[in-house]
Design a protein around this nucleic acid. Structure first.
Ligand SMILES: [Mn+2]
Ligand SMILES: [Mn+2]
Ligand SMILES: [Zn+2]
Ligand SMILES: [Zn+2]
Lengths: 144, 144
DNA sequence: TTCGTATTTAAGAATTATTATTATTTAGAG
DNA sequence: CTCTAAATAATAATAATTCTTAAATACGAA
């Protein structure tokens, strides 16, 4: 993963994005979360180490990342957008209990769907992206 | 479809919902739209025939419908919720061009996914609902 | 290494979808 | 037809996000 400070700076430079501390910190924080944080969560998350970064900057930076394909938006039925450090297609599990959204890898299922739709298509519709969201509950794992 | 005024009133009565003109009108409007309207669209849509219904009532009624399983919420990456007069599982096509969201019937695909997940399951996760959203563009149909 | 400048930032105001409050109206049980 | 709990309209409040602007900063050029 391009997760070190130097990597991120290179990453930004390649895209012609000015490398500022707030941006690096926000991007790192986004990558650290596993449950797809909101802008506010990221803002809170960076407070300890980097106080003073404004919430507006968090929003603008997240937008910038999305625009440059370094992140994507994830919508929920709450009134806040959440962010994903991945931009490739993958399945999301939405936990109704914890409100966590976690990634789920299932290449088999994704291929099944893609093949089916490649073959059959959708009349009158040009497919760009297929999203599979699975709602349910994360089970509490009992370690014995 | 239970779409006549009498049907809707019966429908409401069965659920113990008081049958008021605003509610009937809002519910009818929701069913008439095919592209999954926002509360505001519904509010505007009913103005001509039934002016004076407040936007707050539209919101409250839509919530009531959702609570009683007569409608469901549909989220998008815009900051407004849209509503669906269906509550059964079905596929949505999101048109990036027109912002329309249209239903797509494909029992074959839904069964394919359901069977696959029934068999394989998702470790550590209790599946309640599977949502398939397909983003892309509605093709302009050229009638000759 | 400086500069110079276009870009970015922090702060706070503004916007916008949605929800809450409350006085008034109304559905519908009796 | 009356009575009353529930619904409505009007409007204020809330909360996520965006906008505005003056001050700070990155970074290419000198
Ligand atoms: Mn909102
Ligand atoms: Mn909002
Ligand atoms: Zn993800
Ligand atoms: Zn639908």
């Amino acid at each position: 993963m391009n997760t070190t400070l130097a990597d991120i700076k290179d990453n930004f430079k390649e895209l012609g994005i000015k490398s500022t501390l707030p941006r690096v910190v926000i991007y790192q924080a986004l990558m650290k979360f596993t449950h797809h944080p909101s802008a506010e969560e990221i803002h809170i998350g960076i407070q300890k180490k980097y106080p003073g970064v404004s919430l507006a900057t968090v929003y603008k930076t997240l937008d910038l990342l999305v625009q440059n394909n370094l992140a994507s938006k994830v919508v929920t039925d709450e009134d806040k957008v959440r962010y994903d450090p991945r931009t490739d297609q993958h399945i999301h599990l939405y936990c109704k209990k914890t409100n966590k959204i976690v990634d789920h890898e299932d290449a088999g299922l994704e291929k099944l769907i893609a093949d089916y739709l490649n073959l059959k298509g959708i009349p009158g519709f040009d497919i760009h992206q297929i999203q599979v969201n699975i709602k349910g509950e994360l089970k509490t794992i009992i370690k014995k």
